[in-house]
């Protein structure tokens, strides 16, 4: 099991990222072996909360073994990094590139994203 990647505060999903204090590069998932941009490591890297709000860069449907289907998206977070996420609502026919989305959690293990604006 990997390190915890999100938490919920006041009903909002916080994405737990990492930031480099040398070059301000931010990334997700939170892996702190070294900065991909400048190579800084150790104390130069620190945890950085990222807002779960962002924009859809691209999305696609992925069939599942049980005959179901989910929508996968690349989301560029307002706080910087691009992440992969499941879009839980609406369905792909009502999604478009550029849609605003934010993370939602059932409070347990899973974060999905939903569209927040028309």
């Amino acid at each position: 099991m990997a390190a915890k990647m999100f938490r919920v505060e006041d009903g909002k999903v916080i994405i737990m990222g990492t930031e480099c204090s040398q070059c301000q590069h931010r990334w997700f998932p939170p892996v702190s072996f070294g900065c991909e941009r400048c190579g800084a490591y150790g104390d130069d890297l620190h945890a950085r909360d990222l807002s779960s709000t962002g924009q859809i860069y691209a999305f696609t449907t992925v069939p599942e073994r049980d005959g179901g289907m989910y929508t996968l998206a690349q989301v560029v977070l307002d706080d910087g990094p691009a992440i992969r996420a499941i879009i839980s609502e609406p369905g792909p026919e009502k999604l478009a590139i550029g849609d605003r989305v934010e993370g939602v959690s059932d409070g347990a293990e899973q974060v999905t994203f939903r569209k927040t604006s028309p």
């Binding site: 099991m1 990997a2 696609t60 992925v62 996968l72 998206a73 499941i86 590139i97």
Partner: peptide, 22 residues
């Protein structure tokens, strides 16, 4: 064990489907 928020099987093809969509 680097993980992502996607807790479902995701074959390499999904990456290229995203590129195709864009």
């Amino acid at each position: 064990g680097f993980d992502s928020l996607v807790r479902k099987p995701m074959a390499p093809v999904a990456q290229f489907a995203l590129l195709a969509n864009r």
